[in-house]
Simulated scan of single mutants.
Amino acid sequence: MSESLQHVVGQRLRAHRQRLGLSQEKLADQLGYHRTYLGSVERGERNLTLVSLEQLAERLGVDPLDLLRP
Score class of each variant (00 low, 15 high):
Ser2Thr: 15
Glu3Tyr: 01
Glu3Trp: 00
Ser4Glu: 06
Ser4Gln: 11
Leu5Tyr: 09
Gln6Trp: 08
Val8Asn: 07
Val8Met: 04
Val8Ala: 08
Gly10Gln: 02
Gln11Gly: 15
Gln11Ser: 12
Arg12Trp: 08
Leu13Gly: 01
Arg14Lys: 15
Ala15Asp: 14
His16Arg: 14
Arg17His: 01
Arg17Phe: 02
Arg19Ile: 15
Leu20Glu: 10
Leu22Cys: 06
Leu22Lys: 11
Gln24Val: 00
Gln24Leu: 02
Glu25Asn: 09
Leu27Cys: 09
Leu27Val: 08
Asp29Met: 01
Gln30Cys: 09
Gln30His: 13
Leu31Gln: 04
Tyr33Trp: 06
His34Pro: 03
His34Thr: 06
Arg35Thr: 00
Thr36Gly: 04
Tyr37Phe: 15
Leu38Gly: 09
Leu38Lys: 02
Val41Thr: 03
Val41His: 01
Glu42Pro: 00
Glu42Met: 03
Arg43Pro: 01
Arg43Leu: 13
Gly44Asn: 06
Gly44Ser: 07
Glu45Arg: 09
Arg46Cys: 12
Arg46His: 07
Asn47Glu: 04
Thr49Arg: 06
Thr49Lys: 07
Leu50Ser: 11
Leu50Cys: 09
Val51Met: 11
Val51Pro: 01
Ser52Ala: 14
Ala57Gln: 08
Ala57Leu: 08
Ala57Met: 03
Ala57His: 01
Glu58Arg: 13
Arg59Gln: 11
Arg59Asn: 04
Leu60Gln: 10
Leu60Gly: 05
Leu60Ala: 03
Leu60Asn: 07
Gly61Ile: 06
Gly61Leu: 02
Gly61Phe: 01
Val62Cys: 10
Asp63Leu: 12
Asp66Lys: 13
Asp66Ser: 13
Asp66Phe: 14
Asp66Thr: 11
Asp66Trp: 13
Leu67Trp: 05
Leu67Asn: 04
Leu68Arg: 10
Arg69Phe: 09
Arg69Tyr: 11
Pro70Val: 12
